[in-house]
Structures are given as structure tokens and as C-alpha cells.
Design a protein around this nucleic acid. Structure first.
Length: 260
DNA sequence: AATGACGGCAACCGCGAAAGA
DNA sequence: TTCTTTCGCGGTTGCCGTCAT
């Protein structure tokens, strides 16, 4: 037997909210607050709506501090960075964006941002088509470590960053049962190493420690090497960011698909 | 002008967590 | 401790406007 419905669906209005309903809900909430009970609220406010529907309407649309309109580049970066590290926890991501709701962020990610990022990554994979693009380059000086408050702003997810980092010497040791997985050796050697086979993606660094490019933003990473693997524009399973709680904004190397 | 495809977004659904009796 | 109720969240749906044919 299933769970009892939160309201009598036969007697509640559904679908888009009318301006009158918006006014009724907003007026009531501004005067009385939620009273800690959304289920009882619609009756008190004179609305024929489900309490959950009222809550959603208020949180996602009627709240006075809601920010409508397009997302900024800075917000894009925050969303990408957090999605990278914590996955689709939209409420947490939205909490870092004043005036934005989890629904907004989720919709924005699903309809625009995801495509934008994947398209950029796909462009980067043109190195697959033209391996001569892979050349050793000088290591630029590391950026200053940002303060905690500035950490999100400091994470530049511009995909062009992914190819700035010199390709690292990599070992093929694989400790994972997942295919499409590699580990990387020490970063101390910035020399280019010929990579056998095709280049399928780029590795992002989740480790902490010795590299001047390791920006430990939170509590530091786990010991050892933990990598984000991006394969052909798609992020490989398991979930994004599950291996580390710190990230930096540089790829650690190129990546080859290996199936074990 | 009509129609279909597509994208954006508001709203709904159902589940797990939290709170309280 | 257990059960019930409510909240909060993420996934999904479906409506509506826009664009292409």
C-alpha cells in the first residue's frame, strides 16, 4: 500500500498559478509567514492548492529575494565548479548563488550550461584529430592561492585551461575495476611523454601536495592520486567528483581509454 | 499561414530525511 | 523505539513560445 497523498488531489487546483493566486499567497505569507506548516497554509490563505505547490511557488518564484534573468559568467563558474565537486546537489549549489533557486540552477544546468561545457570539451578533443597540437610548453607561474571566500571565483573552468598544463608523465597502473581509468605519476616531471594510442580525454587533478598547481580549497584531498576523468566530452562514471573534496583548475594530463 | 520540432522553464511527483507525538 | 506527518530535494513532465520548414 502506497503512501497517503499529502492532499486531496480531486479538490486542489493544479497547473500554472494565476496572478490572483500569487497575490493571495504572497499577501498571506508576508503577513503570517508559513506558520511552520505548509500543508495547512493554503486553506488559511484561501487557496485551493496543495501545500507543496504553495511552498514551491513561494520558494521558486514569489520570494522577494529571487533573482530572475540570465546567469552571469561568474555564476556559471560557480555552478560548474560545485557540480564538479559535489554533483547534482542543486540546493547546495543554489545556496552559493544569492537569489537563485535550486530549480533555477537545475533547469539552467540541464538546458544550457551542460551543453555549453560539453561543447567546449568536444572542441578540446580536436587534439584527437590533430595530435600535432600536443607540444610541451613552459610552465607558467602558479596563481596565488585564493582565500576561502574567493575560492569559487578563483576556479576557472574555462576548458582552454585544460590544455595549458603540460602533459604529465603518466603511468598506466590501474587500480580501478572501472575501465576508462588511469592513474598519474608524479607531477615533478613536466616533460612531454609520448602517449601510446589515442587520446580520449583529459585528467583533472584531485590530489593535494607538492605540485605548485595543487590548490587545496577545502579540507585537502585524500592521500594518493585521485583523478577526474573526462572522456570524449563526457564525464565517466562514477559520479562527478566523488573521489576528492578539493580540486584545482588544471588538467593533470592526457588520458587514454584502457579497458581491463 | 500552417505545422512540427525544439528549447526553456514552471510545476508536479515520489522518495528519504527530519521532526514530533 | 516506533509510527505518523511534514519538509526538502532531485528527477521528470508537460506547457508554451519560438524557430524552421
Amino acid at each position: 500500500m502506497g503512501r497517503a497523498p499529502c492532499c486531496d488531489k480531486a479538490n486542489v487546483k493544479r497547473g500554472p498559478w494565476s496572478p490572483d493566486e500569487d497575490i493571495a499567497l504572497k499577501t498571506y505569507l508576508e503577513k503570517h509567514g508559513t506558520g511552520g506548516n505548509w500543508i495547512a497554509l493554503p486553506h488559511k490563505a484561501g487557496l485551493k492548492r496543495c501545500g507543496k505547490s504553495c511552498r514551491l511557488r513561494w520558494l521558486n518564484y514569489l520570494r522577494p529575494d529571487i533573482k530572475h534573468g540570465g546567469f552571469t559568467e561568474e555564476e556559471d563558474n560557480i555552478i560548474c565548479s560545485l557540480y564538479n565537486s559535489i554533483g547534482s546537489r542543486w540546493s547546495v549549489i543554489a545556496s552559493q548563488l544569492p537569489g537563485r533557486t535550486d530549480n533555477d540552477v537545475k533547469n539552467y544546468w540541464n538546458t544550457k550550461l551542460k551543453k555549453k561545457i560539453l561543447a567546449s570539451l568536444a572542441n578540446n578533443n580536436q587534439i584527437q584529430q590533430n595530435p600535432s597540437l600536443i607540444t610541451p610548453i613552459d610552465v607558467p607561474p602558479p596563481p596565488a592561492l585564493p582565500s576561502n571566500n574567493a575560492m569559487f571565483n578563483a576556479i576557472n573552468i574555462d576548458p582552454s585551461m585544460f590544455v595549458v598544463d603540460p602533459f604529465q608523465e603518466m603511468s598506466g597502473t590501474n587500480s580501478s575495476s572501472q575501465n576508462n581509468s588511469c592513474t598519474s605519476s608524479s607531477r615533478s616531471n613536466n616533460s612531454y611523454v609520448a602517449w601510446p594510442g589515442e587520446i580520449d580525454g583529459l585528467l583533472m587533478d584531485f590530489s593535494f601536495g607538492s605540485s605548485p598547481y595543487d590548490h587545496v580549497f577545502s579540507n585537502g584531498g585524500y592521500g594518493g592520486v585521485q583523478e577526474k576523468v573526462i572522456v570524449g566530452g563526457e564525464v565517466s562514471p562514477p559520479n562527478l567528483g566523488v573521489w576528492g573534496n578539493s580540486i584545482d583548475n588544471n588538467s593533470q594530463g592526457i588520458y587514454e581509454s584502457v579497458t581491463y
